[in-house]
Design a protein around this nucleic acid. Structure first.
Lengths: 340, 340
DNA sequence: CTGAAAGCGCTTACAG
DNA sequence: CTGAAAGCGCTTACAG
């Protein structure tokens, strides 16, 4: 019932190997033969079997995409579909399929990745996050399997290909923007220090403070874990500090959005009473009240470039690791104001 | 370099077939042998090769997930990651992997699906949308390949397994809610009639009007295509009608959200001047101003049940088609008010 | 330019 | 309870 290369071969009066070469469009086969074989393939409704091809050719034509566990990027965060859109554009242009791994704990992710890699389900992997001491990343590196990271690796930066924004620089700029508006009490909201992106942004934030001779205040750091549990509470205690912040740098528009709604509850107005800058430039930031000033990190590009880079690496395993930096765009809207 | 079943067999002093049976945990192998073989597998770092297994066993242990083209569900819509979370929970519990198809046009989707199915990349497919006369769905049905639809099929309902909400009923309820608040001029915003979900919701909306003896007004229908192009324009002309609506039923919280922001621009207040009910109950509806009254369609459940159903079908191909209806929850917030 | 043959790493009747 | 053998549907040196 299933049409194989043999059926095509028989009908076209050639050897199976010839059919195989026609599929691969080998230049060693005459156009005449190609034409005949292709006609028969059409006629018989032949479709190559991926498993068989993979097994024989030792290539799966699929890439694995590893999502961070849901605890991190809340699953309702549009970052994910957007980065995936970039990934799939590149993958399809190169005729690769996408195999998705969505473990919900670190261990689950690790197991999925090892089985994916060692079971040869994919030819390469794009890791959609970078965390401190991540055993999944270590595994990929040690097994010398083609992979690329969206984000900056915590260790061995020079030996791993990755695609990232310059998070230190852009957070520094954003913080400076607030400082230039006269703010001194600036809080940093929403990062788990397990993720390199948080570390980088925090460092950018600190650098800006330093340059302006503003001392760094531990109390002005609100951790993501805490927000997830009880964002309202987290914000309220931040605003009850003896000298509450007059500006916020938040890691993500979704968090900024949530914060704005809690601030409103306690009659603190944005931007009149407190300014906010954020990251990601999601669609909602434009329609939010007030519209959120945000750093566009070009999510689509991150995914697209990462995949291009991975596929290049799959095709030429000896390519040297490289770092691709995607520029950010500062989108000024209405959530910041000069300090009164 | 790659450890195969043969290496394990040799080292454990058994036949490759025995190793294979140990992997499958066949009851016909003695515990003693299993133990020894497993030890050797561990020692050698053996991992079964998926392609080889698939080829021999004619099962891939992967399901294909077909996204709607991006034009429809805007890619920033959290519907997608949420449904995927449900899918992956079920898939992983059953030890299936997820193969993602994300074509950007109907034809691309169709090609990806045919190649996925005929090339045996997956054992079954979950289709994340249902449109009128969809050739992808027709193909799946005709090729008698296991698949399940999230949404209601346009044709052959009795022959296709699908998981859906009762969209007619829930839209009727929601519209009635507005009618009970005294609204007569109710607009329906944001659906392409190519999608069955829109057809159903529109019918629910019409049913409610009918029961209340309110004539249906074509002018009160705003099409999705139009919104995508220029949502602001679309809304403005709706509100410039001789008798503008005093209430809106929108297809999606994201659209509702956008509409609220345009309404504000022209000084129309929600809910004082116009009431809005919407669907999906995204996270943002809670923090929106005003918080949006929305129908929770249980996106996660839709994905989860669909995948369970598909896997059941893969395992027992003769299971009869079934329809699973996921109940909706009406979440009342602050976007509706009694007509003045 | 084309073919015969071996092999990719598994599974699964069949036989004992 | 275990093994020998055939086969899944391809690719790819090798030979001509």
């Amino acid at each position: 019932m299933i049409v194989t290369i043999k059926d095509v071969a028989k009908k076209a009066n050639v050897a199976p190997s010839t059919v195989s070469r026609v599929i691969a469009n080998s230049p060693r086969i005459s156009e005449k033969t190609k034409k005949r074989v292709r006609e028969v393939m059409e006629e018989l409704g032949y479709h190559p079997n991926f498993q068989a091809r993979s097994l024989a050719a030792k290539s799966t034509q699929a890439i694995g995409v590893i999502m961070p566990n849901s605890a991190f990027h809340a699953f309702q965060n549009p970052f994910f579909p957007e980065v995936l859109r970039g990934i799939s554009t590149s993958a399809h242009a190169n005729k690769y399929g996408i195999y998705l791994s969505t473990g919900s704990t670190e261990d689950e992710i690790y197991n999925e990745v090892t089985s994916m890699v060692q079971g040869r389900r994919v030819d390469g992997v794009v890791l959609l996050y970078s965390r401190v001491n991540d055993k999944t990343m270590n595994f990929l590196q040690q097994s010398n399997f083609p992979f690329v990271v969206v984000g900056r690796p915590y260790e061995n930066e020079e030996r791993i290909s990755f695609v990232d924004n310059d998070n230190i620089y852009s957070t520094k700029q954003v913080t400076k923007h607030l400082i230039n508006l006269g703010h001194h009490n600036i809080a940093f909201v929403g990062g788990s220090l397990n993720f390199v992106v948080t570390i980088d942004r925090l460092n950018g934030y600190k650098l800006a403070l330093e340059e302006a001779n503003i001392p760094f205040n531990e109390k002005y750091m609100v951790h993501e874990e805490y927000i997830k549990e009880n964002g309202r509470e987290a914000l309220h205690s931040l605003m009850s500090l003896p000298s509450p912040p007059t500006a916020l740098v938040t890691q993500d528009d979704l968090i900024a959005y949530e914060m704005i709604s809690y601030l409103e509850e306690i009659r603190i107005r944005v931007p009149e009473d407190i300014s906010i800058v954020s990251f990601n430039n999601l669609m909602l930031s434009e329609h939010s009240k007030p519209p959120i000033t945000s750093v566009d990190i070009c999510i689509y590009q991150l995914g697209f470039e990462a995949t291009n880079c991975l596929i290049e690496k799959i095709k030429m395993p000896n390519t040297l690791p490289k770092r691709i930096t995607i520029p950010t765009k500062f989108i000024e809207r209405k959530s910041c104001e000069r300090k009164k």
